[in-house]
Computed example of a mutant assay.
Amino acid sequence: MTSVDRTAYPAFARAVSVRELAESFTPTEAEIEWARGRTQDERHLLALAVWLKSYQRLGYFPKVEDVPAVVVDHVRGAQDVELERSASRSAKRHREFVRTHLGVTYEAARGRQVAEEAIRKAVQSKDNPADLINVALEELIRARCELPGYFTMASAIRAEVKNGFFQLVAGRLDPSTRARLARLLVVDPVSRRSEFDRLKDVAKAASLGKFKERLALLAEIDAIGPTGEWLEGVPAGKAAHFAGEARSPTPPTCARSPRTSG
């Protein structure tokens, strides 16, 4: 599972510095007045202000209880009120206040479309799910869309595109070629190795005999078939990724990141 730490997905630092508190979480007088004008009592004022500053920093709404205590204390110091977790109805209304104030939209369908288009374009040259997520994040921020809480679509689109390339190559192989390639995977019961495994042998110490063996192995690989023609239309970067997966087939999956919704 791809860790959120490996992506550019915004999150609270484990230890929020004094500098970050001052630069990112200090409400301005105008913001405090704005918050006061949209809450009916002091109990919800701090929650609204914390959400405002958190959204400005993260690009999405965290749960109030997930905000570091130092951030809450810093925002509280600017208002001198106690934090009150808003009721569900109030919380939804407060999130809409923040979105309107910051000029961002919460349109799940549009956000998904923006992210999906970005991932489909990036997956032609990138393969790491973290890289695909980062590209989608950049596009969502550029489009002023609220960030989604998870990116399961990255893995789904990645698999879809990869399967498309696999079908493209497989469609170019005649039955005899497919049978020949399938035989490469048959494991010898004595040596416990397959021909495919042997093809991945690295070059050994330089000597005339080893050099001749290497040339013979390369000739066998070339005799497999016109691989250049089979891979025509597959980006070089994707072909390199597929080769890497053949050496160590452990594809990662996409990350989930808990947060609020709606």
Score class of each variant (00 low, 15 high):
residue 187 V to E: 10
residue 80 D to H: 13
residue 25 F to M: 11
residue 213 E to V: 01
residue 25 F to Y: 15
residue 225 G to E: 03
residue 225 G to Q: 05
residue 237 G to M: 06
residue 52 L to T: 06
residue 231 L to T: 02
residue 74 H to P: 04
residue 218 L to H: 13
residue 242 F to H: 03
residue 202 V to A: 14
residue 176 S to D: 15
residue 97 F to L: 08
residue 214 R to Q: 13
residue 202 V to I: 12
residue 114 V to Y: 06
residue 210 K to I: 02
residue 61 F to W: 04
residue 187 V to M: 05
residue 238 K to Q: 14
residue 245 E to V: 07
residue 194 S to Y: 07
residue 124 Q to A: 12
residue 191 S to Q: 10
residue 17 S to A: 07
residue 99 R to T: 02
residue 21 L to W: 08
residue 261 S to W: 15
residue 253 T to L: 08
residue 65 E to H: 14
residue 114 V to L: 02
residue 84 E to Q: 15
residue 135 V to R: 04
residue 95 R to E: 03
residue 102 L to S: 06
residue 244 G to S: 12
residue 39 T to Y: 10
residue 223 A to T: 00
residue 109 A to P: 01
residue 16 V to A: 02
residue 97 F to G: 01
residue 136 A to D: 03
residue 115 A to V: 00
residue 116 E to Y: 03
residue 257 S to C: 08
residue 195 E to T: 09
residue 32 I to P: 03
residue 178 R to N: 03
residue 215 L to W: 02
residue 211 F to R: 13
residue 187 V to P: 01
residue 117 E to R: 15
residue 139 E to S: 10
residue 204 K to H: 10
residue 11 A to I: 06
residue 148 P to S: 03
residue 65 E to L: 07
residue 220 E to S: 15
residue 142 R to D: 13
residue 261 S to C: 06
residue 80 D to E: 13
residue 80 D to V: 12
residue 100 T to I: 01
residue 175 P to T: 09
residue 50 V to I: 15
residue 73 D to W: 04
residue 154 A to E: 07
residue 96 E to K: 12
residue 15 A to R: 14
residue 35 A to V: 14
residue 101 H to C: 02
residue 207 S to Q: 08
residue 1 M to D: 06
residue 9 Y to C: 00
residue 109 A to M: 03
residue 170 A to W: 03
residue 59 G to P: 09
residue 21 L to F: 09
residue 41 D to I: 04
residue 208 L to N: 04
residue 81 V to S: 08
residue 109 A to W: 05
residue 158 R to D: 08
residue 146 E to M: 09
residue 114 V to S: 05
residue 113 Q to C: 01
residue 105 T to G: 07
residue 193 R to E: 14
residue 142 R to M: 11
residue 256 R to Q: 09
residue 86 S to V: 09
residue 120 R to L: 13
residue 223 A to M: 04
residue 117 E to C: 04
residue 171 G to T: 05
